[in-house]
Write a protein that binds this DNA or RNA. Structure first.
Lengths: 348, 348
DNA sequence: ATGAAAGCGCTAACAT
DNA sequence: ATGTTAGCGCTTTCAT
């Protein structure tokens, strides 16, 4: 079946250390020493082995080595995020990758897409590949299923949302403080009738943001009695409808605080549909690219996904290096960026 | 050293198949059969083994199994992109991940950041982890270093840019046709003096886009003699400067074709600085989120990163399934999206 | 400075 | 239907 030309140029099987040893005329352990940069090999032998390895295009099998290696490290890390297509997580991923690559660690990334059913399956897929640690933006109501793994001292850092049913490091934005920041900003510009437009109330961070909003109003002595608080908006369309209804109501708000990107965009399109984008103030939670090119520019409370990734990676690597300090949450501050939409005064 | 409480609640080592077998009171091969869903195990034995595995929180070691497994598949794939923080690659990554996950394949993702020095190192890191295949947006001038790996029949699909010095599948946007599309659009709206603003001429796709632009002008019989063609713009600032210079020149263009996102944004800010955003037409290459919320809306030739990812994954999986057809490039079409900026007529 | 032998956790091949 | 043995590619241990 195999033609002659195929057999001569055909696929050579991947060489093993044993074959490199045979070609170099040394024992297999000597090859191992050279590949791993261990001492006690004469320069001449080292050169001979290196040349043999190169000529065979030898690539050591990291996993085979790990089977017997003392530390058992795969130099691999699992990252579980909402979606790798979401720019927030993309930036975070990049930061994690940077820290990992610097230590020769490769990163598996998987998307959860709000599907809590997939969470356990994806974690299990990582674990079967013996990742050295996990960085997780979880979505399931409880992470108790990870308790056995935690007892095995597998480092785990939760991002974006704190874990439930388990004690582990977490790196999160200060959602309540960020929402309060946005609210105070609008209050300072004279607004009293500020509408809150929030994501699904089942999401912990969404609840935190709402809490921050309401508490700040409370601190300012604003009665939250007739403040419109609308939640469970999860996409642009529903946000758009909700804002249109508000604007068309008898006593419309003079300012909006939108607690999430898609909601913010839906709100902006609604304002434009009523030609009110320069009359009603908006502050959004979470930054959006090109926000400064809009008219008016979009004021936001920006999260810092890069910093979240950096801190999460730093924590994970520290745990890998033996850090035994008690697990606790790390809070990454948010920042108000004024670009115009949040600085519009109240119009009766 | 170890206290009593530590030794009782302390970290138990990860259980092996042998320990599951011992606990279940069966041979190790029977556990292997149950874990891998092989037949010829009685329901009673199967249940016994499953319970033992569960009670120990057993996770099979995929890599240990692969060492001996016939197909040697790690169910792992390497994805090398410009940057995982770039939304274009994020979308592409998501599409690849979707196809991979459906087959139980996990995805390693790494960023190149235009650093051709890292390319070989990152590929090597993937190879040492024995990925089943590679999807690569390469940046090095030649991919000849991959020839030995190709001979080993490691499936490889190049994306975004075609490989040099090697024959392998590639999935790319039709850069020249897309640029021609943009150019024709501007011509049809009456423009003759259209400026071209391009990325680094060292980038193959940038050259392709310029070629498409010039060829379309040629087809339309427009003398390219005094058409401003500016290249080697790689960021917003340089693009901004270049466009300002054009606008301030004696005979400014009535339309701009910007060949890349950052260049497009730099051009827009330049137009706004001269209050010309409603007088000078712009078509950008590559879509930008929120482009429709700008004033005027930004017209673009959109690439289809999701489709590129889908096709690349489909090709890779087909190769893994034994597809031996000759390697060739797959072209993913671009699409013109009119949003306003590209439909502005020429103003003397 | 070098290598032989054992074994990591698993699957393949072959018993029974 | 189940178990036993060998061996995957490597590191460890221990000789030399």
């Amino acid at each position: 079946m195999t033609t002659m030309s195929e057999s001569s140029v055909g696929p050579r099987p991947r060489p093993t250390m044993r074959q490199v040893a045979a070609l170099a005329g040394v024992g297999i352990k000597t090859v191992s020493r050279v590949i791993n940069g261990e001492p006690d090999v004469s320069p001449a032998t080292r050169a001979k082995v290196k040349q043999a390895a190169d000529s065979l295009d030898y690539q050591p099998d990291l996993h085979a080595g790990n089977l017997r290696r003392a530390d058992g490290r795969t130099k691999t890390l699992g990252l579980l995020v909402g979606s790798v297509a979401n720019p927030f997580y993309g930036t975070l991923h990049r930061a994690v990758e940077k820290a990992a690559t610097a230590r020769g660690i490769a990163v598996f990334a998987s998307s959860l897409d709000d599907d809590s059913e997939r969470e356990e399956a994806l974690v299990s897929a990582f674990l079967q590949r013996r990742v050295d640690g996990l960085i997780l933006a979880t979505v399931a109501t409880s992470q108790a299923y990870l308790a056995p793994e935690l007892r095995r001292r597998t480092p785990m850092v939760f991002i974006d949302r704190e874990p439930a049913g388990i004690e582990a490091d977490a790196v999160v934005s200060d959602n309540a403080a960020g929402a309060a920041l946005a609210t105070r900003h609008l209050l300072e510009h004279g607004h009293r009738r500020i509408a809150y437009l929030g994501d699904l109330d089942s999401i912990q961070t969404a609840r935190e943001r709402r809490r921050g909003f309401l508490e700040e109003l409370g601190r300012a002595g604003v009665a939250t009695r007739d403040i419109p608080v609308i939640v469970d908006l999860h996409d642009e369309a529903s946000a758009n409808r909700a804002v249109l209804a508000l604007l068309d109501s008898p006593n419309p708000p003079t300012a909006l605080f939108t607690s999430q990107n898609l909601v913010t965009i839906g709100a902006i399109t609604a304002l434009r549909a009523r030609a009110l984008q320069n009359r009603v103030a908006v502050v959004g939670f979470d930054d959006i690219s090109l926000a400064d090119l809009l008219s008016p520019g979009l004021s936001v409370v920006a999260q810092n996904p890069q910093r979240i990734g950096e801190v999460a990676a730093e924590r994970l690597l520290a745990r890998l290096d033996g850090d035994q300090t008690p697990a606790h949450p790390y809070i990454v501050p948010t920042e108000l960026i004024a670009r115009g939409s949040g600085e519009i005064g109240p119009h009766a």
